[in-house]
Design a protein around this nucleic acid. Structure first.
Lengths: 203, 203
DNA sequence: ATTTAGTTTAACCGTTTGGTTAACAAATGT
DNA sequence: ACATTTGTTAACCAAACGGTTAAACTAAAT
């Protein structure tokens, strides 16, 4: 979209689209609603982004670009495994509390169209697990942690950090807690989760 | 729908609707597509279920009724905490491997409309955390496990078991594994996850 | 044999949808 | 000063959507 000189309207659109898409998903979102939220004419959406699909992809890319660096913190940082887990958990949960729609949006739309991630891989700095893998293997070999594959540990870390945000209505209902209590629980998880993980892997 | 004598068509519709709704969600699903998959006329959908919303609710209720008893296994079973975690993890992952769309469907549609769970609470046997809570508190008091709230432990168990299915496209991409390898990883989690949890909480 | 109630179909309907058009306004360049 | 490009608007469009209708079909009950 480099041909446009004035990017004020373009950004207004992207912000509005972000809110609508993240709340209602690709299928549930309406172009008119996005236009209304951006306080502009519907034709402008197509003037700047050509189609709903392309507008959606712009929103998705932006969201993904926000999330990816967070994961780099655990995959490609130089600190010790224990420090990584502590820092990541604390920072990541703080981050998601500020952007609660983000993980669910990305997960949902990726499930809707799994091939989409290939497009993203070429556009955004994409974290790699390689370094993390070496680190875990080394610690297992040294006997500092129990025998576990880097992939399983990685899945566990992500699960414990992300799932409570993705499935909040379900968990709230089962655990029988109200919104305020749930927020307190999430806040406590900044510490609880890293303790839990470190306990699980240390010998 | 008790007025109908022949329930063959009705079930065909529900099955087709289940597949379409679980793959595309409420907003992405089309009544025509459901009719096609059920090999019947579109008017029949309305004859048996009146509206898209009611058909969707029937599908959702059925899915939820399938999932809820699984959770009862961990919340209201009489066995020891360690046995519970082992059994639940093993059985639940086996269950979801057979119904891979289920958790994501429920989570997604509950996020779309959080009030919906109130409707469900009255219709389906709804698990309660009370008994599990007492059990955890007792074990903490006895010193057999580390100090942890039942809610946090419950969240952790659900996260580790469900998230890998909900976020599979994302995890596959980050962990850089193909479909076959990922299936193997999930299969291994039947044991890995319970070891991980038990390690995390035992003193 | 005829009624009756349940089932199925094709055709139809009003609305909403993403997207387009053509005219107009505001900058920008010459 | 004029011409050209860029930004914005209201009106419009065809297609797709969920839902309805009225008539036809089926089979058991009278």
């Amino acid at each position: 979209m480099t041909k446009h000189k004035d990017n004020k309207t373009e950004e207004q659109i992207l912000e509005a689209a972000q809110k609508i898409f993240q709340a209602k998903g690709m299928d549930g979102a309406r172009m008119q609603e996005i236009a209304d939220k951006a306080s502009i004419n519907k034709a402008m959406l197509h003037y700047y982004y050509r189609s709903k699909q392309l507008l959606f992809e712009a929103v998705f890319r932006k969201a993904f670009a926000l999330l990816a660096p967070q994961l780099n913190a655990i995959l490609n940082d130089d600190s010790s495994l224990e420090d990584k887990i502590k820092n990541f958990t604390h920072n990541y949960i703080s981050f998601i509390i500020k952007h609660p729609y983000l993980p669910n949006f990305i997960i949902q739309e990726l499930n809707r169209n799994p091939k989409f991630i290939e497009k993203i891989k070429n556009n955004v700095a994409f974290p790699s697990i390689d370094k993390f893998k070496l680190q875990v293997q080394k610690e297992v070999k040294n006997g500092t942690i129990v025998s576990i594959s880097a992939e399983q540990l990685f899945i566990n870390i992500l699960s414990l950090n992300i799932f409570p945000f993705v499935a909040s209505p379900l968990i709230k209902a089962f655990a029988n807690v109200d919104d305020r209590t749930y927020k307190t629980l999430l806040e406590a998880r900044k510490k609880e989760v890293s303790d839990f993980i470190i306990n699980a892997i240390k010998k």
